[in-house]
Design a protein around this nucleic acid. Structure first.
Lengths: 215, 215
DNA sequence: AACATGTCAACTGTCGACAGTTGGCAGTCT
DNA sequence: AGACTGCCAACTGTCGACAGTTGACATGTT
């Protein structure tokens, strides 16, 4: 099975490496040794290099000439700067969603909110998965593939920054209420309000992350 | 000089290829033959492949498994979708610039506007270069490296779409006036107005490109 | 004539090996 | 002791070659 069975070796390597980076299995600050990881994955250095460059293009790795690829470990400034970009993208998405959403989009959004609420009432910790699902549903409603793609990349970087941070239960309710209000604005087709709520929501999430980093 | 003299072979290949793609020397729709281009550049397929993947990550090429890399040729829908992303990013940049600009930023912005006006009065065609310079100056004033980076990538894709399109002189004055008004809003620190003017400006530019494509 | 099938050249995906660079370590000098 | 110099191992950058896939052309079939 030397040739691409279903996905090229490079493509498979991208998936495996991304997983390992995002879950913190390869901790921030550490280096990715080409020969070592290549043997580990059972592939040659060529495809692995392509995978590394790909993840570098997603900013999940940083390349240093003649030194190799490193998992970036970010400070507070990076978090702030990254959330500036995320806010720009997701506020635009919220506006578009408010003006383009269909009934199916609303059903989906309400569904995610309902699941979050069930989860909350059951005393379960608010899984980050549900937060991602909500934002994804909003992006679907916005129907802007390019914006959606960029948001996906940014969220991925946020996940990387979050690796090693535990969910803070105290902010679950606030996030849920933000989501609910966002859905109402989108329902009303109120683009300006949707944008404003999203901005406040992300500002809150950013502040929480900064607080978690500080500890 | 087998080793990286100042930049790796892959890096050099990226620059050369990007130039050739953006100037239309490699026309949209055409394929990039690895062995052919590699010989042409006097390098091996390895570094060239990395360059191709890099440009693909910038969306200047599209990869088709087992088929190779192609220069994308976009239709009207792509232009609209791309400008949605560009609007999201540059409106945010305009807001940030309005609240963060320093005096040096303003000097630079006025300078670019002045050169545009000199150019216009001299009856010269408005070079796209000056438009890029203006937007770059605004990004510098916004001081958001991540947003700036994304805008750079998007603008590059716009340049690719523009390849083969001539500058339309009839829109020079409108663009110049947009720029002037944008500078005034930034001077006043009026983020909302800066965002609104930017949105109108980009909407106009997008409409112009769609008109050019239609012909 | 239109369609299905077999064959083939061209190209991509992958691999292993070599060359050059980098950072660190031992040894030496001041 | 501290700083400097010269080596050395480890690793990245690059290359050439092989294997597998794809699309197209030629051939045969209905």
């Amino acid at each position: 099975m030397t040739p691409p069975l279903h996905l090229s070796l490079a493509g498979q390597a991208v998936d495996v490496l991304r997983e390992q980076v995002l879950t913190g299995k390869i901790p921030p600050g550490s280096r990715v040794n080409e020969v070592e990881v290549a043997q580990q994955l059972g592939i040659s250095r060529g495809p692995l290099r392509e995978a590394i460059r790909h993840l570098a293009s997603e900013r999940l790795l940083v390349l240093v000439p003649h030194r190799g690829a490193f998992v970036p470990d970010a400070g507070a400034d990076d978090v702030r700067a990254l959330f500036e970009l995320r806010t720009a993208l997701e506020c635009a998405a919220a506006e578009l969603a408010a003006s383009r959403r269909t009934d199916v989009d609303l059903v989906r959004l309400r569904e995610v909110c309902a699941e979050s609420r069930r989860n909350y009432r059951a005393g379960q910790p608010f899984p980050y998965r549900l937060d991602l699902a909500f934002h994804q549903a909003l992006l679907d409603a916005a129907r802007s593939p390019h914006i959606a793609e960029q948001v996906r990349l940014v969220q991925q970087r946020v996940v990387l920054l979050r690796s090693g941070l535990e969910d803070d239960p105290s902010h679950q309710q606030a996030s849920m209420e933000d989501h609910d209000e966002l859905v109402r604005a989108v329902e009303d087709g109120d683009a300006a309000r949707a944008s404003a709520v999203m901005r406040r929501h992300l500002s809150r999430v950013c502040a929480q992350m900064l607080a978690s980093l500080g500890r």
